[in-house]
Design a protein around this nucleic acid. Structure first.
Length: 560
RNA sequence: UGGGGCGUAGCCAAGUGGUAAGGCAACGGGUUUUGAUCCCGUGAUUCGCAGGUUCGAGUCCUGCCGCCCCAGCCA
């Protein structure tokens, strides 16, 4: 790790701990609960935890926080593993579960009972809530708080043995019902749940709570720095309480950082689920979803996600990062890597009246203008071609330098053409352009070096490949849908548009997962689920930067 | 109104007593057979606000304001 880069506050702490000899090795963990798919917020946590360890030759555990069998599912487990791997991180043999430690956790529960620091409470959930007090009023002690160590031990063991039905008892830490920190008002440690667990089956009918299980799992694994988000800051005194009283051999330190929020997106598993349930999206991996699976299917490169996170930084300040930062990270990688191709999304027919019928020329097109080593490909050219409807304007403003009546434009990697005639149907809609080409201007070999301001893309009519192209946009109309009462009220109706496009023939042999740039339009890839040889389906990953769109927008604003 | 955090440019973010880095966005210009890429240039007399300490404060002190989190047998 380079020293000239200023370190974030967590890396500073870690560096100091290494420097001072407090730790010889850094050990971190990424602890997802297998109850949903990983999203952009998790990407930050994954990059931080795995990144900070890797930078210091440390180790990172992928540990499932599977303490609530009612909410967790095996299907999420597999998705989580493939997502983390795809992002570029590896846990080697350090794949663990909080449930791996259920026996040791139980022993720690008994130890707390022995120490007189935990008791079995027999109040109902409602009664416990009533006793807890409020933010401004102290709680009251449970009438069962002073049970003897012996009675507590007996009850706790019988809880484990399955003698009680759900909810009749709970093991609680005995801390302070008057604490201004709600987490210290005798938090629950164990609850009874006669449910089988996706990993331990029916071995248990009592399950540990998050604070207890998480703290001790960290300690058992020798985690040195337990990095979590800000909402757990209030839990740190409890985290330290467990450590102080149970005195495990390793003492991890919890450090909190702020979550990464992405503008116009949602990062709540519950709300993401609402989108799926209401059929707003097709599933967890819908390309509009801010899930890792969705972004991957959309075509975002893993490296772009990693760079994006790096740009955000690690702090304790609430942040809402603009979508543009993510998109730019994607463009940055794809601009370098993606080969160029031509495709017409909204086709307008052009007939070159002076081009021989039946003739087909193969034009040479660069695969990447800035990387000649990526070579060239052949693109067929003929009398009838498709161009983008947006590239023609009948009444064009002065600054529009694409095609207009009587005007000239260069066809990328081919000839310069002039628009001679606009053909319309009875409804007055433009259905065809009749143009003439300048035979001297063939790309590369042309004898003419006439300068033409505009260059547009095209696809040869006869050889064009039909394809369905999905154009994605943000899912919401407001920057912070997380704060809205009902996300269904702020859905962007145009988050998905589908067009029937014309592609250049070489696109038939694209590798699955390979992103290409459709010149002048954006980056695209075949959809992992719906694309097939017989019916091509492409996803738009992200548009190119479009300064013409910006000019148009400004003009609009000027008019109104 | 209890407790815990956080406030530096539109969005992120360095800075830890010596006179406000950087990225993204925006704007201006150059190159260009992608209105892309690339290149160059332009932003904070000011760091939530008000006082105070100091030769000197974003950095220290005091007060105030604003935003976020906490009352699951969820994580």
């Amino acid at each position: 790790m380079s020293d000239d880069v200023s370190r974030d506050f967590i890396r500073k702490i870690i560096y100091d701990d290494l420097e001072s000899g407090k730790h010889d090795e850094i050990v971190t963990r990424f602890p997802p609960e297998p109850n949903g798919y990983l999203h952009i917020g998790h990407v930050m946590s994954i990059c931080l935890n795995f990144g900070v360890a890797a930078e210091n030759d440390g180790r990172t555990f992928l540990r499932y926080d599977d303490t609530n069998p009612g909410k967790e599912d095996e299907v999420f487990v597999r998705a989580i593993e493939s997502d983390v791997h795809w992002l570029g991180f590896d846990w080697a043999d350090r794949l663990t579960h909080a449930s791996d430690y259920f026996e040791r956790l139980y022993e720690s529960g008994e130890k707390l009972v022995e120490l007189g620091l935990a008791y079995v409470d027999s109040l109902s959930a409602d009664e416990i809530r009533e006793h807890r007090g409020t933010l401004t009023e102290c709680g009251r002690n449970s009438p069962f708080r002073d049970r003897s160590v012996g009675e507590n031990m007996d009850l706790f063991r019988r809880m484990r043995a399955g003698e009680f039905v759900d909810g009749v008892h709970v093991l609680r830490a005995k801390i302070d019902m008057a604490s201004p920190n709600m987490n210290l008002r005798d938090p629950a440690l164990y609850r009874i749940r006669h449910i089988s667990h996706q990993h331990t089956g029916d071995a248990w009918c009592i399950y540990p709570m998050y604070d207890f299980a998480h703290t001790l799992s960290d300690a058992f694994e020798g985690i040195t720095h337990s990095l979590c988000t800000l909402e757990f800051e209030d839990h740190r005194p409890l985290y330290d309480w467990f450590l102080d009283n149970l005195k495990p051999p390793h003492r991890p330190r919890q450090i909190e950082f702020s979550r990464l929020n992405l503008a116009y997106a949602i990062t709540s598993k519950r709300k993401l689920g609402v989108l799926i349930d209401n059929k707003v999206v097709s599933g967890w991996d819908d390309p509009r979803m801010p899930t890792i699976a969705g972004m991957r299917r959309r075509g975002y490169p893993a490296a772009a996600l990693r760079n994006f996170v790096k740009r955000g930084g690690v702090t304790k300040k609430d942040k809402l990062i603009e979508m543009g930062v993510l998109e730019n990270s994607v463009r940055e990688i794809l601009g370098e890597v993606a080969e160029r191709r031509m495709a017409v999304l909204r086709p307008l027919k052009v007939v070159l009246t002076n081009y021989p019928e039946g003739r087909v020329e193969m034009m040479q097109a660069m695969n990447h203008p800035n990387r000649p080593e990526l070579g060239k490909r052949e693109v067929p050219f003929s009398r009838e071609i498709w161009i983008e409807r947006d590239d023609f304007m009948e009444d064009a403003p002065r600054k529009f330098f694409r095609l207009k009546p009587g005007g000239e434009v260069r066809l990328r990697s081919a000839y310069i053409i002039r628009c001679d005639e606009v053909v319309k149907n009875d409804a007055g809609e433009i259905v065809e352009l009749r143009c003439s080409y300048d035979a001297d201007t063939r790309s590369g070999t042309g004898t003419s070096d006439r300068k033409i301001k505009g260059t547009i893309h095209w696809v040869s009519g006869d050889q064009a490949l039909p394809a369905t192209v999905r154009l994605y946009d943000r899912l919401f109309t407001v920057p912070d849908p997380n704060t809205v009462d009902d996300i269904m009220d702020v859905l962007n109706p145009d988050s998905l548009a589908t067009v029937e496009a014309k592609l250049e023939p070489s696109l038939a042999s694209l590798e699955p997962g390979e992103a290409v740039q459709f010149e002048r339009l954006g980056y695209f890839c075949q959809d992992a689920h719906d694309n097939s040889k017989d019916s091509l389906v492409f996803n738009r990953i992200v548009t190119l930067r479009d300064s013409w769109a910006r000019i148009e927008k400004q003009a609009m604003r000027g008019q109104t």
